[in-house]
């Protein structure tokens, strides 16, 4: 049982980065495809399409920070907590990035047709980002309360 619990601890430590990366890959790919489609149809302003398509990459950065904050010498006492925090924040980041990719793809489609609505069309993506930031910040706060976390 011990190795299993310690294994879960390792899983929890690496989950934020791995799941965040998976989400960012999917989100950026989808938004990037929309950007490529918009480039086909428009005569200029390509930079902003590509810029928007990179928005879902922030989740992998949050994942790296959470992973570093969870990385410590861990024991049977701390491994379940590390797993719970790391795995759940990883899931939140992954889904956040995937769905932010949808929002960015839609924003690109809107911006292509109606450039004056470019800013407001990004609001849904920003809201999704807000939820990811919540998950990220409170994962850091909780990580400090685990033994060996300096809290």
């Amino acid at each position: 049982m011990e190795p299993f619990i310690l294994g879960l601890g390792w899983l929890g430590v690496f989950s934020p980065l791995a799941l965040g990366a998976v989400g960012s890959i999917i989100g950026c790919a989808r938004a990037g495809q929309a950007a490529c489609g918009a480039i086909l149809e428009t005569e200029g302003g390509y930079g902003r399409y590509i810029g928007v398509s990179a928005m879902p990459s922030s989740q992998v950065i949050y994942g790296i920070v959470v992973m570093l904050s969870l990385n410590r010498l861990f024991s049977l006492e701390t491994a379940p907590g590390l797993f719970a925090i790391g795995f759940l924040v990883g899931l939140a980041l992954m889904f956040g990035a995937v769905y932010q990719g949808y929002c960015c793809a839609s924003a690109i489609t809107v911006a292509k047709t109606k450039s004056e609505a470019f800013g407001i069309s990004l609001a849904p993506a920003a809201i999704v980002e807000g939820f990811c930031v919540f998950a990220f910040v409170f994962a850091l706060v909780l990580a400090r309360s685990l033994p060996g976390g300096g809290g």
Binding site: A29, R30, Q33, L40, E41, T109, T113
Partner: peptide
């Protein structure tokens, strides 16, 4: 994937 690029490319 194909729909995203295609739909974004349609005026």
């Amino acid at each position: 994937h194909a729909y995203v690029t295609l739909i974004a490319s349609l005026p």
